[in-house]
Protein backbone atom coordinates (compact mmCIF):
# COMPACT_ATOMS: atom_id res chain seq x y z
CA UNK A 1 0.00 0.00 0.00
CA UNK A 2 2.96 2.29 0.61
CA UNK A 3 4.48 1.31 -2.71
CA UNK A 4 1.86 1.82 -5.37
CA UNK A 5 4.62 1.64 -7.96
CA UNK A 6 5.18 -1.98 -7.18
CA UNK A 7 1.53 -2.71 -7.36
CA UNK A 8 1.63 -1.76 -10.97
CA UNK A 9 4.95 -3.41 -11.82
CA UNK A 10 5.42 -6.44 -9.62
CA UNK A 11 8.07 -7.75 -12.04
CA UNK A 12 10.38 -4.81 -11.50
CA UNK A 13 13.25 -5.84 -9.18
CA UNK A 14 13.76 -3.31 -6.43
CA UNK A 15 15.09 -3.34 -2.85
CA UNK A 16 11.69 -2.66 -1.35
CA UNK A 17 9.86 -5.12 -3.57
CA UNK A 18 7.66 -7.93 -2.36
CA UNK A 19 9.13 -10.64 -0.14
CA UNK A 20 8.25 -13.35 -2.61
CA UNK A 21 7.68 -13.16 -6.32
CA UNK A 22 6.53 -16.06 -8.42
CA UNK A 23 6.81 -15.19 -12.09
CA UNK A 24 5.25 -17.05 -15.01
CA UNK A 25 5.81 -20.49 -13.59
CA UNK A 26 5.14 -23.53 -15.72
CA UNK A 27 5.59 -27.13 -14.63
CA UNK A 28 4.39 -30.42 -16.06
CA UNK A 29 4.58 -33.98 -14.78
CA UNK A 30 2.67 -36.50 -16.83
CA UNK A 31 0.32 -33.65 -17.66
CA UNK A 32 0.86 -29.89 -17.41
CA UNK A 33 -0.02 -28.74 -13.89
CA UNK A 34 1.03 -25.09 -13.90
CA UNK A 35 0.95 -23.27 -17.22
CA UNK A 36 1.59 -19.65 -16.41
CA UNK A 37 1.17 -18.70 -12.78
CA UNK A 38 2.42 -15.55 -11.10
CA UNK A 39 1.90 -14.20 -7.61
CA UNK A 40 3.55 -12.03 -5.01
CA UNK A 41 3.59 -11.95 -1.25
CA UNK A 42 4.55 -8.78 0.56
CA UNK A 43 6.14 -8.57 3.96
CA UNK A 44 3.71 -9.43 6.76
CA UNK A 45 0.97 -10.34 4.34
CA UNK A 46 -1.14 -13.51 4.37
CA UNK A 47 -2.23 -14.84 1.01
CA UNK A 48 -4.73 -17.66 0.63
CA UNK A 49 -4.29 -19.98 -2.33
CA UNK A 50 -7.57 -21.57 -3.37
CA UNK A 51 -8.44 -24.04 -6.06
CA UNK A 52 -9.79 -27.48 -6.78
CA UNK A 53 -7.97 -30.65 -5.81
CA UNK A 54 -5.11 -31.39 -8.17
CA UNK A 55 -4.67 -27.86 -9.51
CA UNK A 56 -1.12 -27.71 -8.21
CA UNK A 57 -1.46 -25.85 -4.93
CA UNK A 58 0.95 -28.18 -3.13
CA UNK A 59 3.23 -28.09 -6.15
CA UNK A 60 3.31 -24.29 -5.93
CA UNK A 61 4.51 -24.42 -2.31
CA UNK A 62 7.16 -27.01 -3.15
CA UNK A 63 8.41 -24.86 -6.00
CA UNK A 64 8.86 -21.94 -3.60
CA UNK A 65 11.26 -23.84 -1.34
CA UNK A 66 13.02 -25.51 -4.25
CA UNK A 67 11.72 -29.04 -3.64
CA UNK A 68 10.54 -29.00 -7.25
CA UNK A 69 12.00 -27.16 -10.20
CA UNK A 70 9.81 -25.32 -12.68
CA UNK A 71 10.08 -26.03 -16.40
CA UNK A 72 9.83 -22.30 -17.02
CA UNK A 73 9.55 -19.14 -14.98
CA UNK A 74 11.36 -17.75 -11.98
CA UNK A 75 10.82 -17.42 -8.27
CA UNK A 76 12.44 -14.73 -6.16
CA UNK A 77 12.60 -14.67 -2.38
CA UNK A 78 14.05 -11.38 -1.11
CA UNK A 79 15.67 -10.91 -4.50
CA UNK A 80 17.40 -14.27 -4.34
CA UNK A 81 16.45 -16.32 -7.33
CA UNK A 82 15.22 -19.56 -5.72
CA UNK A 83 15.20 -21.33 -9.04
CA UNK A 84 18.95 -20.73 -9.43
CA UNK A 85 20.20 -21.54 -5.92
CA UNK A 86 22.59 -24.40 -5.22
CA UNK A 87 22.03 -26.92 -2.42
CA UNK A 88 23.86 -24.92 0.20
CA UNK A 89 22.00 -21.71 -0.59
CA UNK A 90 18.72 -23.61 -0.63
CA UNK A 91 19.52 -24.83 2.87
CA UNK A 92 19.83 -21.28 4.17
CA UNK A 93 16.65 -20.29 2.35
CA UNK A 94 14.83 -23.15 4.05
CA UNK A 95 15.95 -21.99 7.45
CA UNK A 96 13.95 -18.80 6.79
CA UNK A 97 10.81 -20.46 5.45
CA UNK A 98 8.60 -22.72 7.53
CA UNK A 99 6.65 -25.41 5.71
CA UNK A 100 3.59 -27.16 7.09
CA UNK A 101 3.03 -30.21 4.90
CA UNK A 102 -0.44 -31.34 3.91
CA UNK A 103 -0.08 -34.59 5.87
CA UNK A 104 2.15 -33.05 8.57
CA UNK A 105 5.04 -35.29 7.40
CA UNK A 106 6.35 -36.00 10.88
CA UNK A 107 9.25 -38.45 10.88
CA UNK A 108 7.66 -41.62 12.24
CA UNK A 109 10.82 -43.04 13.74
CA UNK A 110 11.24 -40.09 16.13
CA UNK A 111 9.31 -38.60 19.00
CA UNK A 112 7.55 -35.27 18.56
CA UNK A 113 10.32 -33.56 20.54
CA UNK A 114 13.02 -35.11 18.36
CA UNK A 115 11.09 -34.09 15.27
CA UNK A 116 11.27 -30.47 16.37
CA UNK A 117 14.83 -30.75 17.62
CA UNK A 118 16.10 -32.00 14.28
CA UNK A 119 15.02 -28.79 12.57
CA UNK A 120 16.70 -26.68 15.25
CA UNK A 121 19.93 -28.69 15.11
CA UNK A 122 20.21 -28.26 11.38
CA UNK A 123 19.03 -24.67 11.10
CA UNK A 124 20.41 -22.95 14.22
CA UNK A 125 23.53 -22.94 16.42
CA UNK A 126 21.64 -23.21 19.70
CA UNK A 127 22.81 -25.50 22.51
CA UNK A 128 20.59 -28.29 23.75
CA UNK A 129 19.14 -26.28 26.63
CA UNK A 130 18.10 -23.40 24.41
CA UNK A 131 16.67 -25.82 21.89
CA UNK A 132 14.66 -27.58 24.58
CA UNK A 133 13.19 -24.25 25.64
CA UNK A 134 12.16 -23.40 22.10
CA UNK A 135 10.67 -26.84 21.55
CA UNK A 136 8.53 -26.60 24.66
CA UNK A 137 7.44 -23.11 23.71
CA UNK A 138 6.49 -24.13 20.17
CA UNK A 139 4.54 -27.12 21.47
CA UNK A 140 2.76 -24.92 24.00
CA UNK A 141 1.59 -22.69 21.20
CA UNK A 142 -0.25 -25.64 19.67
CA UNK A 143 -1.25 -27.10 23.06
CA UNK A 144 0.84 -30.21 22.65
CA UNK A 145 3.38 -29.73 25.42
CA UNK A 146 2.37 -33.07 26.92
CA UNK A 147 3.09 -34.95 23.71
CA UNK A 148 6.76 -34.09 23.54
CA UNK A 149 7.85 -37.71 24.15
CA UNK A 150 5.12 -39.37 22.11
CA UNK A 151 5.64 -40.99 18.75
CA UNK A 152 3.71 -39.58 15.76
CA UNK A 153 1.78 -42.86 15.47
CA UNK A 154 0.31 -42.23 18.92
CA UNK A 155 -1.25 -38.92 17.87
CA UNK A 156 -4.59 -38.25 16.22
CA UNK A 157 -4.76 -36.61 12.81
CA UNK A 158 -5.44 -33.18 14.28
CA UNK A 159 -2.64 -33.53 16.81
CA UNK A 160 -0.24 -34.53 14.03
CA UNK A 161 -1.21 -31.43 12.10
CA UNK A 162 -0.55 -29.30 15.15
CA UNK A 163 2.75 -31.03 15.84
CA UNK A 164 3.72 -30.41 12.22
CA UNK A 165 2.80 -26.77 12.71
CA UNK A 166 4.95 -26.57 15.85
CA UNK A 167 7.83 -28.11 13.93
CA UNK A 168 7.55 -25.56 11.15
CA UNK A 169 7.44 -22.54 13.47
CA UNK A 170 10.12 -23.70 15.89
CA UNK A 171 12.87 -22.35 13.62
CA UNK A 172 11.18 -18.93 13.80
CA UNK A 173 10.79 -18.47 10.07
CA UNK A 174 10.26 -15.17 8.32
CA UNK A 175 7.73 -16.74 6.03
CA UNK A 176 5.32 -19.64 6.51
CA UNK A 177 3.86 -21.92 3.89
CA UNK A 178 0.79 -23.77 5.14
CA UNK A 179 -0.51 -26.64 3.04
CA UNK A 180 -4.10 -27.26 4.13
CA UNK A 181 -3.58 -26.33 7.78
CA UNK A 182 -7.18 -27.00 8.78
CA UNK A 183 -8.47 -29.59 6.35
CA UNK A 184 -9.91 -32.66 8.00
CA UNK A 185 -9.97 -31.12 11.46
CA UNK A 186 -12.96 -30.50 13.66
CA UNK A 187 -14.29 -26.92 13.63
CA UNK A 188 -12.88 -26.08 17.05
CA UNK A 189 -9.33 -27.24 16.33
CA UNK A 190 -9.66 -25.74 12.92
CA UNK A 191 -10.48 -22.29 14.20
CA UNK A 192 -7.80 -22.50 16.88
CA UNK A 193 -5.23 -23.17 14.16
CA UNK A 194 -6.61 -20.31 12.12
CA UNK A 195 -6.23 -18.09 15.17
CA UNK A 196 -2.68 -19.27 15.63
CA UNK A 197 -1.87 -18.34 12.05
CA UNK A 198 -3.27 -14.86 12.66
CA UNK A 199 -1.35 -14.57 15.91
CA UNK A 200 1.92 -15.52 14.25
CA UNK A 201 1.30 -13.00 11.55
CA UNK A 202 0.42 -10.22 13.99
CA UNK A 203 2.91 -10.89 16.73
CA UNK A 204 5.91 -11.79 14.60
CA UNK A 205 4.98 -10.18 11.31
CA UNK A 206 5.40 -13.46 9.50
CA UNK A 207 4.28 -13.46 5.89
CA UNK A 208 2.28 -16.52 4.95
CA UNK A 209 0.80 -18.47 2.12
CA UNK A 210 -2.15 -20.57 3.19
CA UNK A 211 -3.25 -23.24 0.78
CA UNK A 212 -6.74 -24.31 1.68
CA UNK A 213 -10.05 -25.71 0.53
CA UNK A 214 -11.66 -24.28 3.57
CA UNK A 215 -13.15 -20.87 2.83
CA UNK A 216 -13.89 -19.95 6.46
CA UNK A 217 -10.19 -20.44 7.21
CA UNK A 218 -9.25 -18.36 4.21
CA UNK A 219 -11.56 -15.55 5.30
CA UNK A 220 -10.26 -15.69 8.85
CA UNK A 221 -6.56 -15.56 8.11
CA UNK A 222 -5.95 -14.05 4.70
CA UNK A 223 -5.63 -10.51 3.41
CA UNK A 224 -5.53 -11.53 -0.20
CA UNK A 225 -6.56 -14.56 -2.24
CA UNK A 226 -5.18 -16.28 -5.30
CA UNK A 227 -7.37 -18.76 -7.12
CA UNK A 228 -5.71 -21.36 -9.32
CA UNK A 229 -7.51 -23.15 -12.11
CA UNK A 230 -6.23 -25.18 -15.05
CA UNK A 231 -2.68 -23.95 -14.54
CA UNK A 232 -3.52 -20.25 -14.42
CA UNK A 233 -4.19 -17.70 -11.70
CA UNK A 234 -7.80 -16.74 -12.37
CA UNK A 235 -8.22 -14.44 -9.39
CA UNK A 236 -5.72 -12.32 -7.52
CA UNK A 237 -7.15 -9.73 -5.22
CA UNK A 238 -8.53 -8.67 -1.91
CA UNK A 239 -10.26 -11.35 0.11
CA UNK A 240 -13.34 -9.10 0.21
CA UNK A 241 -13.55 -8.96 -3.59
CA UNK A 242 -13.70 -12.72 -3.91
CA UNK A 243 -17.50 -12.81 -3.60
CA UNK A 244 -17.83 -9.98 -6.11
CA UNK A 245 -15.94 -11.72 -8.90
CA UNK A 246 -18.06 -12.83 -11.82
CA UNK A 247 -15.66 -15.47 -13.09
CA UNK A 248 -17.89 -18.50 -13.77
CA UNK A 249 -15.48 -21.02 -12.23
CA UNK A 250 -15.05 -18.92 -9.15
CA UNK A 251 -18.79 -18.47 -8.75
CA UNK A 252 -19.28 -22.20 -8.93
CA UNK A 253 -16.39 -22.83 -6.56
CA UNK A 254 -17.77 -20.42 -4.01
CA UNK A 255 -21.34 -21.66 -4.24
CA UNK A 256 -20.16 -25.27 -3.97
CA UNK A 257 -18.43 -24.47 -0.70
CA UNK A 258 -21.83 -23.33 0.65
CA UNK A 259 -20.70 -20.27 2.41
CA UNK A 260 -23.97 -18.40 2.64
CA UNK A 261 -24.25 -14.71 3.28
CA UNK A 262 -25.03 -15.04 6.97
CA UNK A 263 -22.16 -17.35 7.73
CA UNK A 264 -19.87 -15.23 5.61
CA UNK A 265 -20.72 -12.12 7.62
CA UNK A 266 -20.25 -13.99 10.88
CA UNK A 267 -16.81 -15.13 9.86
CA UNK A 268 -15.87 -11.65 8.74
CA UNK A 269 -17.03 -10.21 12.05
CA UNK A 270 -15.01 -12.80 13.92
CA UNK A 271 -12.07 -11.93 11.75
CA UNK A 272 -12.37 -8.27 12.60
CA UNK A 273 -12.33 -9.10 16.29
CA UNK A 274 -9.34 -11.39 15.91
CA UNK A 275 -7.30 -8.99 13.85
CA UNK A 276 -8.09 -5.91 15.89
CA UNK A 277 -7.39 -7.51 19.28
CA UNK A 278 -4.01 -6.25 20.38
CA UNK A 279 -1.44 -9.04 20.19
CA UNK A 280 -0.95 -10.47 23.66
CA UNK A 281 2.58 -11.63 24.32
CA UNK A 282 2.29 -15.07 25.95
Amino acid sequence: MIHPFHHKHPDEPHEEGPLLRVEHIAIAFEKPVMKDASMTVRKGETVAVLGKSGTGKSVLLKLIVGLLHPDAGKIYYKDKEVTALDDLQLMSLRSEIGFLFQGAALFDSMTIGQNLDLFLVKHTDLNSEEREKKIVHALEMVQLENSIDQMPSELSGGMKKRAGLARSIVIEPEMMLYDEPTTGLDPVTSSSIAELIVTLQQRLGIASIVVTHDLPTAYTVADRAIVLNEGYVIFDGDMKDLQKSDDPFLREYLSASRLDRERHDKILAARERLHSSAPQPA
Partner: peptide
Protein backbone atom coordinates in the same frame (compact mmCIF):
# COMPACT_ATOMS: atom_id res chain seq x y z
CA UNK B 1 5.39 -44.48 2.30
CA UNK B 2 7.83 -41.82 3.48
CA UNK B 3 7.67 -40.35 -0.01
CA UNK B 4 3.87 -40.55 -0.07
CA UNK B 5 3.57 -38.89 3.35
CA UNK B 6 6.03 -36.16 2.29
CA UNK B 7 8.56 -37.15 4.96
CA UNK B 8 11.32 -37.15 2.35
CA UNK B 9 10.35 -33.62 1.30
CA UNK B 10 10.28 -32.66 4.98
CA UNK B 11 13.84 -33.94 5.38
CA UNK B 12 14.94 -31.76 2.51
CA UNK B 13 13.26 -28.80 4.16
CA UNK B 14 14.96 -29.70 7.46
CA UNK B 15 18.33 -29.62 5.66
CA UNK B 16 18.70 -33.28 6.55
Amino acid sequence: SMRASEQIDAMDVAAL
